[in-house]
């Protein structure tokens, strides 16, 4: 059973959509299984670190750290290119009011669901733009992005939380859009608009999905039929679905966070042998 304080996110919901057994192990039972998820690990690690730095740089930029100071911290050419791309086109045409790294929290199906948005740019009464920075090596197709839970969860959460962000007034779904901006393909952003029908459908789908998860018990989280996914799953050995991790450069999206506890930073606790 999920803990009382469990909070859903696009990551955990995507896991369930991809493979219920993965959701069970990672989120319900919180099992650590340190197998590589994609190879070569050296490349994966460097890419993840670079992606995290890039997100942090944009956060710094949004809160007013001077560009020259941020640029001084760039320590490799690829990151420098991403940064130049971001300055040239990352914010093209988006409103001036901005929140970086904003976490929205909304109730749904007797639980809460969070959406950690890279950047929210808005002009109240006119436009609410969710920007998501993607640093993957390959540009995902529009269809694949549309199918990602992230696209549904973020837009849904923004409209639901709208009144709290908009001085008490609800946000019209038609004013919401989500832009995936690609650091490696800066001139090919993918834009998803939204409307009231989409919002109602998203609510029904997410409610149904969460209710489905909640009513399942032990042994009711089957493995996915799509065995291609298993190469990228740390638990593949447990389910006898392969030994080697999948190829990193064959992945479409490579910068999804998979934190277990996305909303709380634990300090290290000094060691005291009471």
């Amino acid at each position: 059973m999920l803990p009382e304080s469990f909070v859903y996110s696009q990551t955990s919901l995507q896991d369930f959509a991809d493979c219920p057994a993965l959701f069970d192990l990672r989120w319900r039972r919180r099992i650590k299984y340190p197998a590589a998820e994609s190879e070569p690990l050296e490349l994966v690690e460097a890419h993840m670190e670079r992606g995290a730095l890039f997100h942090q740089m944009i956060h710094q930029h949004t809160i007013g750290v001077p560009e020259s100071v941020i640029a001084e911290s760039i320590d490799d050419d690829e990151l420098a290119v991403w940064w130049a791309n971001y300055l040239a086109s990352g914010l093209r045409g988006v409103p001036d009011k901005r929140y970086a790294e904003l976490t929205l929290s909304v109730p749904i199906a007797n639980r809460r669901m969070v959406a950690k948005i890279d950047l929210l740019a808005f002009e109240p009464g006119r436009e609410w733009v969710i920007l998501d920075w993607k640093t993957s090596l390959r540009r995902p197709t529009r269809a694949n992005l549309m199918a990602r839970l992230q696209t549904t969860v973020y837009r849904y959460a923004l409209v639901e939380a709208g009144a709290a962000l908009n001085g008490g007034a609800a946000i019209d779904p038609a004013q919401v859009k989500m832009i995936y901006w690609f650091a490696n393909f800066p001139d090919q952003p993918e834009i998803f608009t939204y409307n009231a029908e989409d919002h109602a459908a998203a609510g029904r789908m997410l409610t149904h999905m969460i209710a489905d998860i909640e009513q399942r018990g032990d042994g009711e989280f089957p493995l996915t039929d799509d065995v291609r996914r298993c190469a990228y799953c740390a638990y593949r050995g447990l389910h006898e679905r392969g030994t080697k991790a999948g190829a990193f450069d064959a992945q479409e999206l490579t910068d999804e966070a998979t934190e277990m506890f996305p909303d709380f930073t634990l300090d290290q606790i000094a060691e005291v042998a009471f």
């Binding site: 929205l104 929290s105 109730p107 939380a161 709290a164």
Partner: peptide, 9 residues
């Protein structure tokens, strides 16, 4: 984390 809490940041 209560579902009774209104939506927001």
């Amino acid at each position: 984390r209560s579902a009774a809490l209104p939506p927001g940041a």
